[in-house]
Design a protein around this nucleic acid. Sequence first.
DNA 1: ATAGGGTTAG
Length: 700
Amino acid sequence: MRPLNYDIEIFSYALYKVLTKHCWVIKLGSFADVYTTNNILSGYTKCKELGVACKLFDEMTHRDSVSWNTMIAGCVNSGNFDTAWVFLKTMKRCGFDADGYTFGSILKGVAGAYRLGLGQQVHSTIVKMGYEGNVYAGSALLDMYAKCERVEDAYAVFQCIPERNSVTYNALIDGFVQVSDLGSAFWLLDCMEKEGVRLDDGSFAPLLTLLDDAAYYKLTMQMHCKIIKHGLAFDNTVCNATITSYAECGSLEDAKRVFEGAIGSRDLVTWNSMLAAYLVHEKELAFKLFVDMQGLGFEPDFYTYTSVISACFEKVHKDHGKSLHGLVIKRGLEKSVPISNALIAMYLKLNNKSMEDTLHIFDSMESKDRVSWNSMLTGFSQCGFSEYTLKLFAQMRSLLVEIDHYAFSAVLRSCSDLATLQLGQQVHVLAIKSGFTSNDFVGSSLIFMYSRCGIIEDAQKSFEETSKDSSITWNSIIFGYAQHGQGEFSLNFFFQMRERKVKLDHITFVAVLTACSHIGLVEEGHNFFKSMEIDYGIPPRMEHYACVVDLFGRAGRLLEAKTLVESMPFEPDAMVWKTLLGACRVCCDIELATEVASHLLELQPEEHCTYVLLSNMYGNLRRWDEKASVTRLMRESKVKKVPGWSWIEIKNEVHAFNAEDRFHPHCAEIYHRLGELMEEIKWLDSTASLDVIMPSFDHE
DNA sequence: ATAGGGTTAG
């Protein structure tokens, strides 16, 4: 049981004071001067009593520019930017000029609403009226540009302000932080020190958010020193940001030390920051902290819930995840969009290939944001429900949900899974129109789509359009050429990547090993595998072992494949066994196949491929009894062979078939034409002087 | 009596 909260606040003390003053003025009759009324007006706006303030403003017989400025500031600070703008217009019409106060307030509103166009209008008025150098108007203007991601403009404004103070600097620092320009942000900090402008909490907090990588650990420590030097070690905001920086640099110890030092001045953000730190490094302690903070009376907010929920992505934490879902319902937080989004993401990761829970949450959400839609889109796409991805995408478009790079990437991946070129091209056009083709994720999906649809030239073109400084797109183009059997090109890209000092990752090596295996470069592939940890610091994972098993297997070097699996530093998973089983089939080694299959049957008894493959191998060897026993085992395990499908896209419609399928409305014509084609092939075969290599139709 | 900046998730 949690204690009931009895201190329900009807009026804040501040509001009480304003009300008393107002009553007193009314009692005295209508002799209150503008000065006193403005004072009360301001009191109401500070208490967010905008309605009362408006009424009082209407009743005023004499208003001066302070009255107008107070109303504008009041509207902006309570989030009513449009009303503020109306007040500004009316003010001008009533013959009052805007001043530094007016510009400061209205620009704060413009910045909060990200209305760059309006901001530029205000800018021209400021210049016209000579307020460019006013530190309040100028700082607000600078901040508006910074928030609208126009940091160059912000800097231009900065240079027009003759006497800059901490606020001016801090706003510009944050502008550079927003565009991840660490260098400029630090340079400004130096300038402040040289010019003798006081560094305060607002100078450090935004900067610290950029120190989010192990590479910045030393820098973080240096910043921490500076913070202590400037007497800000116990400042709440700075402490909170420092905790996060240390955690993201990988030092839980330092984060903990700052957290412990902040005892007594901890707020909800402090707890949330430490929670996030623990979630990355020591999950069990995080769950404990989640309980502890509530014991101390801190009511979790959506930051708390989204962090702790998103940490439940592994099977071991499934119970925690479900409990948290229950807690969310119990506390009536289901309506929170970010929390629901976190739950969707959690179930997507926990429920392998099942969308049931996710769909349930998504459907019951009264309002959804872009993240909700994108999560579903990505979920469908990753679970292989490609048609649903496309349907959902169409729905998003008709509901005018903004399509961003996440959406494009997911839907393009589904197009590539379905190998539906025309649809893929349509989505590509949309992506061009909305300017997303240079995004790495979109670019990577485009490369996959074109490569999968057989047009490697267009995959290459899509690659050329990306920035080429992230491994994401390089990996995709390497995969693309590998898929097309042009492994030499793949390796060439790998070498270029190395030359350009693009950071390689574990996926790069999966791509390279795939390329080698597809063109039979056994030695080269094996060498890459051996050097990936030594020369590149990337330890081989399960999928790399699977690739090398495949590499040996395709080359008929079964013994080496087998030895590699035996030497693995961790237990092989189903993927590795499956690859080895494939190698056994190529090499017709039934003994090893039987052994490998036994591991697979244990790990994935529901997987029909294993039974079918083994049964076929016995069949080929005419070992009928054993074949029969495999078939029996399959029947006993209630496993059914899933027939393979083929499909073709004609005029933007997908026609799917499986063997001996007679359901298509144009079935008769199709089979007739098929018969003609077969005749043609036979005729070609009989007239060919060279050996015609017939494709072996694989119906397994 | 009226004005400008900053910390936590994904």
